[in-house]
């Protein structure tokens, strides 16, 4: 009995001056989250909501009002031109993605597995980024003197007699757009793959060899599956950038290849905000679907 009383008194005395941990301590996690949450709300969630909202506004030739209508959406899906632009965007995306993978993987394999020295690995990876030291537009425009009718490639092919007439197909076509994009974005494929490849423990490859597997089998069954997370990360980088592209196609297609990005630029230029917002929403959805599908391929959280 006396013990119990003593205990109660003790507790009340001990607790009076400070009632548990302070407010800041108890809600520390919220405080730490706050800057990020505020930032994301202001610059991601609000603009996205705004874009969806604006896409339902009423657009007249020279003005826009906030009366809600689905007119801009009907215009988009009712027009062959715009649906074709959507399909073209998807087509260019697939081709560029495939090309960056085909070109990038061997390079990554060389950097990640054949170069043993970590320092040299880093140097070579940085060297891949050197083109980025020049402006994006210069890099794109530099393809014109390469691919044009009187360009370097046509002249060279004519000189060595492979062709007699210059090839028109090289510049101001979808081909030149793909070439330009692959050149610009391939490094985003190389980086993540090289990183994953460099992380593969050499003893796994030795173990596979010891178990009797040939080099090709080792690549197919061990090296490639283990580098897949890198491929997926690279593919996400490339996809997100290519789907929103407009500058490369503007500069290298002679305005013949219109991607969704180009249409947004044109519409915004003529103050058609509602229509631009429709395309913006569609582009966002397409990108989200693509990223989701890519993430389905590999459990990145487990692999990284």
């Amino acid at each position: 009995m006396t013990d119990a009383t003593a205990n109660t008194i003790d507790r009340s005395v001990a607790h009076k001056p400070r009632q548990g941990p302070s407010f800041f301590v108890r809600h520390r996690h919220l405080l730490l989250l706050a800057p990020g949450m505020i930032w994301m709300t202001l610059f991601l969630i609000l603009p996205l909501a705004m874009m969806v909202y604006v896409s339902f506004w009423t657009q007249t030739t020279f003005s826009i009002s906030s009366d809600l209508t689905t007119q801009s959406w009907q215009d988009f899906f009712g027009s062959d031109t715009y649906v074709a632009a959507l399909l073209r965007t998807l087509k260019i995306w697939i081709i560029v993605l495939a090309c960056t993978f085909v070109v990038g993987y061997p390079v990554a394999l060389f950097i990640g597995r054949y170069i043993q020295n970590r320092v040299v690995q880093t140097i070579v990876l940085v060297a891949c980024v050197i083109p980025f030291w020049t402006s994006f537009l210069i890099r794109v425009l530099a393809w014109r003197p390469m691919l044009g009718r009187e360009g370097a490639i046509n002249l060279l092919l004519q000189d060595i007699g492979v062709i007699t007439e210059p090839i028109d197909y090289l510049l101001f076509t979808e081909f030149s757009v793909v070439v330009g994009m692959v050149q610009i974005y391939v490094v985003f494929m190389v980086g993540p793959i090289a990183f994953m490849l460099a992380r593969i423990d050499g003893s796994l490859i030795e173990a596979a060899r010891d178990l009797g597997a040939s080099s090709w089998t080792i690549f197919r069954r061990i090296i490639f599956p283990l580098s897949l997370p890198g491929v997926v990360v690279g593919a996400i980088f490339v996809s997100v950038m290519v789907l929103g592209e407009f500058a490369t196609s503007a500069a290298l297609s002679g305005r013949k290849t219109n991607l969704l990005g180009n249409i947004i630029v044109t519409q915004v230029g003529s103050l058609k905000w509602a229509f631009a917002a429709v395309i913006g929403v569609i582009l966002t959805i397409v990108t989200a679907v693509v990223v989701t599908l890519l993430l389905r391929l590999v459990n990145l959280r487990r692999e990284l």
Binding site: L204, A207, D210, G212, R221, P225
Partner: peptide, 28 residues
């Protein structure tokens, strides 16, 4: 010859079964 490595060198992306079956299925 068989070589059991010090760090085991198991293939991390495979199940126990597939690890063991690797040599049987894939040897040249």
């Amino acid at each position: 010859l068989g070589f059991v490595q010090q760090n085991y060198a198991l293939f991390p992306h495979m199940t126990v079964f597939n690890n063991i079956a690797f040599g049987l299925r894939n040897r040249a």
